[in-house]
Structure formats: structure tokens, C-alpha cells
């Protein structure tokens, strides 16, 4: 009965969760993007189709060539390149010339992901990296077209005085939620389509709810405080989260697990940092919009949030105290900043 061969060397555990797969998580993101893409194409028709196609060709093509030339196995199957390409396309202004989309896609994929070592090794969100690259290099081409039917982007208009209610009154919150009749980056308009995708991902456990909840919650909290101080209408907080790319960024970009912290508390701090930077860029900075910059800046803080000397998988008394102090200082800064 005894046989001396035929027993494999393994180490415990000998079983694995069959449903836990990177591919499954990534395909879920693709599915969650469908409502946004449908809305974008409905709204911008062939402009959107072309931007999306060029983005896919540039990003996925770059990755494909890279692995072909290096004679390494190609990782298209897990879908990460496709996700980056779609997100990158959806955060483009509709007026972006296609050649800029292409250059940004190639550059972003190569310098944002492949030079770091491909999937799992990149420090920055690839789509955000590509977007910031073209903003800095070709900013003049990306001015949102104010002559379209919808008029200026909500944030572009209120930049001069963020709390001018006369102007804010021109924007219908419901329109901003549904995305019908507003201008902006092509995929960021319809809050309802984005939330639908987000709920799907949360239900499938393919994103960590901590990041979007703490991100959007922070922006809501800070804008409420700001509105109270300057005496603005209480629709202002809602206006803040529905305008620009906060919802899209919070649900599809900030939750990229590769570029966010690994611990639960770390993710809460990360979302908080995103909210603070986004809101501060909006009301104090020179740019009308800060989501992508906030994401890239917080990406740089991820190693610090994960550093073994203080990162903890549970909240501790010490970490809660430190975090509370940081929150108080932030609120103090906001109060000092808007008190005029």
C-alpha cells in the first residue's frame, strides 16, 4: 500500500477562498463603469466614443507593447490597464484634442505604471497621473468650452468667489445630480450613474467603503462649516460634492487598492486627507478643481500611512487622539481661512 512517490510538498493552509480573485475585483469595476459610460456617450455622443477609444488604444497598447518588447507575459487579462484607460477617458474635458489624449495615455501608462514594475507596484493612480501630466503640459487646450449649451462648468464659474450665492443659484442641484445639462469632464457629470456603480462595487465588496465615505464625508463636513461661517445657503455642501469630480474620484479613483493604504484606519485617514486637500484646493487654491491633485498628493502619503512604526489594523486610543488633533487643526485652518 505504501507508495514513496506521488505526494506533493505544500505548506499550510491547503485550501483557498475560491471567490477571491484579482480579476473578479477588476471586472467588477468595469461593470460598475458601464452606467457612467452609457451616460457619457448619451451626452457627448461621438466625442466621448472617440476619447474612450483613443484612451484604450494608447494605454492598453502601451502596456501590450511594453510586455511584448520585454518578452514578459502580458497581464491584460486582469483588466487593470483597461480600467485605467476608461477612467482616464472619463476624466477628460470634452474639448480635449485626441492627440493629447493619446500622448497622455502613453505617457501615463509608461511613467505612471510600467516603470514602477507594472500592476501592483505603481505608486500613483495611473489615470490621475496621466491626467495631471496633460494638464501641466497642454493646459491651454483643456479649457472647458463655455459656449456649449450647458454653459460654463459649475466650478469654473464659482472660482472667483466660491460662496457667491447669486451664481450658485444658477445651478440646479437636481441637474447636477442627474448630470443632464451641466458641463464638466465627460464622465463626472451624472452623480446618479456614479453612485449606481459605487453601490454595485460596495455590494460586491470590490471596493472599500471606508475611502469614499470618509472622503465625501470630510468634504461635506468642511463645506458645511465653511457655509456656516460665511452665512451661505445650506445647499452649498451639496453643491460642493455634486460639482466637479468628487463623486467620480471618490468611488473610482481613490478606491484603487494599489495606491491606497492597507489598513482600515489608514483608509479612513486617507479619505480624510483627500477630502481636506480637495476642498482646500477649491476654496484657497488657484485651480477650480482639486480631485486629481488630491489623489496624487495622498498617493504619496500612503507609505507614510502604512509605515510599520505607527500603522495599526485597528483604531487605538493613541491613533484616535492624534487623528482628533489633526481634524481640529484642519477645522481651525478652515475657519481662519474663510473668516473675512
Amino acid at each position: 500500500m505504501a507508495s514513496k512517490t506521488g505526494f506533493l510538498r505544500k505548506t499550510s493552509p491547503y485550501v483557498r477562498e475560491p471567490k477571491a480573485k484579482v480579476e473578479k475585483m477588476m471586472y467588477d469595476v468595469l461593470i460598475a463603469l458601464i452606467p457612467v459610460i452609457i451616460f457619457t456617450i448619451y451626452k457627448y455622443e461621438f466625442t466621448a466614443v472617440w476619447i474612450i477609444l483613443v484612451s484604450i488604444v494608447s494605454m492598453v497598447g502601451t502596456e501590450f507593447l511594453y510586455y511584448k518588447l520585454r518578452k514578459e507575459p502580458f497581464t491584460m487579462k486582469n483588466g487593470t490597464a483597461l480600467i485605467s484607460a476608461l477612467i482616464y477617458a472619463l476624466i477628460m474635458p470634452d474639448v480635449t484634442p485626441l492627440w493629447i489624449v493619446f500622448i497622455g495615455g502613453v505617457f501615463g501608462m509608461y511613467f505612471g505604471k510600467l516603470v514602477f514594475g507594472g500592476m501592483g507596484a505603481n505608486i500613483f493612480n495611473v489615470a490621475g497621473f496621466a491626467r495631471v501630466f496633460i494638464v501641466i503640459s497642454f493646459g491651454a487646450f483643456l479649457v472647458y468650452d463655455v459656449d456649449t449649451v450647458a454653459g460654463a462648468t459649475a466650478l469654473g464659474v464659482v472660482k472667483a468667489n466660491p460662496f457667491d450665492m447669486m451664481i450658485l443659484g444658477d445651478f440646479n442641484l437636481w441637474n447636477m445630480f442627474t448630470g443632464v445639462g451641466e458641463a464638466g469632464s465627460i464622465g463626472e457629470l451624472s452623480g446618479i450613474a456614479i453612485l449606481l456603480g459605487g453601490l454595485y462595487l460596495a455590494f460586491r465588496k470590490s471596493l472599500d467603503w471606508r475611502i469614499p465615505v470618509s472622503y465625501i464625508g470630510t468634504v461635506l463636513g468642511l463645506s458645511t462649516i465653511a457655509a456656516l461661517i460665511v452665512g451661505a445657503e445650506m445647499t452649498y455642501p451639496l453643491f460642493t460634492i455634486l460639482s466637479g469630480g468628487i463623486l467620480f474620484g471618490a468611488i473610482f479613483m481613490a478606491t484603487d487598492p494599489i495606491t491606497s493604504p492597507v489598513t482600515g484606519p489608514g483608509r479612513i485617514y486617507y479619505g480624510f486627507g483627500l477630502g481636506v486637500i480637495t476642498f482646500f484646493i477649491r476654496i484657497f487654491g488657484a485651480l477650480p478643481e482639486g480631485v486629481v491633485f488630491a489623489i496624487l498628493i495622498m498617493n504619496m502619503f500612503v507609505p507614510a500611512l502604512d509605515y510599520y512604526k505607527w500603522a495599526n489594523s485597528k483604531f487605538t486610543i493613541k491613533s484616535t487622539l492624534v487623528f482628533s488633533v489633526v481634524v481640529l487643526v484642519t477645522v481651525g485652518l478652515l475657519v481662519v481661512g474663510v473668516w473675512q
Binding site: M25, G118, M119, G264, S313
Partner: peptide
């Protein structure tokens, strides 16, 4: 085996509250 995507499942699941990925 794929590269780690830092999803954090191991951190959430560890009964000893460790950070296996780190």
C-alpha cells in the same frame, strides 16, 4: 499567483490583528 494589489483582505481577516501584507 498575481502581484499583490494591496486590497487589504489579509489585514481585515487576521484574527491576531496583524498586517500580513506588511
Amino acid at each position: 499567483e498575481e502581484p499583490c494589489v494591496r486590497c487589504g483582505s489579509c489585514v481585515y481577516s487576521c484574527p491576531a490583528n496583524l498586517q500580513p501584507v506588511q
